[in-house]
């Protein structure tokens, strides 16, 4: 049997001594798109950050296996090179470092890790141009400092461009839809759809159902008070939209 891509077992985690995830279970296979939905404070962002390895979050107990290996013992950069990617809700600006420099370094670190050939700046530029088409991004952005002076939509597109370049096995999109107008949302979602494949998996972390009109999930998990309280197919998202989170909040208590 194929090893599961991601398996989260009874995960309890928090920040600054406050427990936020209170026994979370999740199983993700290659080729699947999962949506994790939930009201504010339910622990959605905590889950993303724990999976990516943010140093401010502590794991209290439980297990996270990535391809059968303990993910939690890896540093954030090791996780990334193993194929875990998180698109940030608030992408960070890195002044003075050009997008193409940054992306080439990240790409080459991954290649090095895989024992594959690294690309020089010219070769990488060609590769990047191809990838930029996925999110309809102007090559003008390659020379600009990472995210500096980018609009909200441009920042999110840049996150998806990074995903396209790094080709992760597991991509966690943390509230990628927040702050986007309808056009930007469509471009970002179309980009994600193009990157969706049988070999990778995507976790969409979102408050709203809106994004799921564009990216159809295979599974929807509803998070409330640090636990998954309801699971189903894509129709669950619609039901949630209709009934609101109060409907599931009761289940958490």
């Amino acid at each position: 049997m194929e090893i599961m891509l991601l398996e989260v077992k009874d995960l309890r985690a928090g920040i600054e001594g406050k427990e936020i995830l209170k026994g979370l279970n999740l199983q993700v296979n290659r080729g699947e798109v999962h949506a994790i939905m939930g009201p504010n404070g339910s622990g959605k962002s905590t889950l993303s950050k724990v999976l990516a390895g943010h140093p401010s979050y502590e794991v209290i107990s439980g297990e996270v296996l990535f391809e059968g290996k303990d993910l939690l013992e890896l540093e954030p950069d090791e996780r990334a090179r193993e194929g875990v990617f998180m698109a940030f809700q608030y992408p960070v600006e890195v002044p003075g470092v050009s997008n193409s420099q940054f992306l080439r370094l990240a790409y080459n670190e991954k290649m090095k890790h895989l024992g594959q050939e690294e690309l020089d700046p010219l070769e990488f530029n060609d590769y990047l141009k191809e990838k930029a088409k996925i999110v309809d991004m102007d090559p003008q952005f390659f020379k600009r400092s990472v995210n500096e002076g980018f609009s909200g939509g441009e920042k999110k597109r840049n996150e998806i461009l990074q995903m396209a370049v790094l080709e992760p096995k597991l991509a966690i999109l943390d509230e990628t839809d927040s702050g986007l107008d309808i056009d930007a949302l469509r471009i970002v979602a179309e980009g994600v759809n193009k990157l969706r494949s049988e070999d990778n998996a995507i976790i969409l972390v979102t408050h709203y159902q809106r994004l799921l009109n564009y990216i159809q999930p295979d599974f929807v998990h509803v998070l409330a008070d640090g636990k998954i309280v309801k699971e189903g197919g894509k129709e669950l998202a619609l039901e949630l939209e209709e009934k609101g989170y109060d409907w599931v909040k009761g289940a958490a208590r």
Binding site: G53, P55, P76, D77, L105, E109
Partner: peptide, 11 residues
Amino acid sequence: ELFYLLTRGLP
């Protein structure tokens, strides 16, 4: 900023 770069696989 550091965390952001780490999550992209930079040591």
